[in-house]
Design a protein around this nucleic acid. Structure first.
Length: 131
DNA sequence: CTGATGACGAGCG
DNA sequence: CCGCTCGCCATCA
């Protein structure tokens, strides 16, 4: 277990109820280039980490099987809505971390959460403003 | 020690 | 939208 994992966990714990973020986002904030480790961290996360609020860049759950359906169920309990494609609307539930909080805790400013979802260049979900 | 694997993402076709 | 490659590294067989 290293500091990087702890940093990731701390960020994950900061995600508000009913909001979600992406692996890439967390990775960027802790200075990671290989986002696989974010997944690794979640895989080994303590019980007090709301790992269900971390999904992939496409706005979908990356897991299959029981764990995946459990994640979706837990998110839906928080009011997160999934479309028919199994994706959430970042404009609705995307977590916009507070810049001051990030700086105060030694994290980097993340790039905009919603880039261009493949084939869905900046319409609906791309309207996230950084404030 | 070596090699395969993976809760991922960007870039390209 | 789909599929493939590569990056980059902890973990496991």
């Amino acid at each position: 277990m290293n500091d990087l994992f702890e940093k990731i966990y701390a960020l994950a714990r900061a995600i508000p109820f009913g909001k979600v973020t992406t692996y890439g986002q967390l990775g960027a904030m802790v200075g990671l280039s290989d986002m696989r480790h974010v997944g690794d961290a979640m895989n080994a996360c303590p019980d007090d980490v709301p790992w269900q609020r971390v999904i992939n860049a496409r706005g979908a759950i990356s897991l299959g099987g029981a764990t995946g359906s459990k994640q979706r169920a837990r998110l839906e309990e928080e009011g997160v809505v999934f479309d028919e494609n199994g994706r959430v609307d970042f404009a609705e539930v995307g977590w916009i971390p507070n810049g001051e909080w990030l700086e105060a805790n030694g994290y980097k400013q993340p790039p905009p959460l919603v880039k261009e979802i493949r084939g869905n260049k900046g319409n609906d979900a791309a309207q996230l403003s950084l404030f």
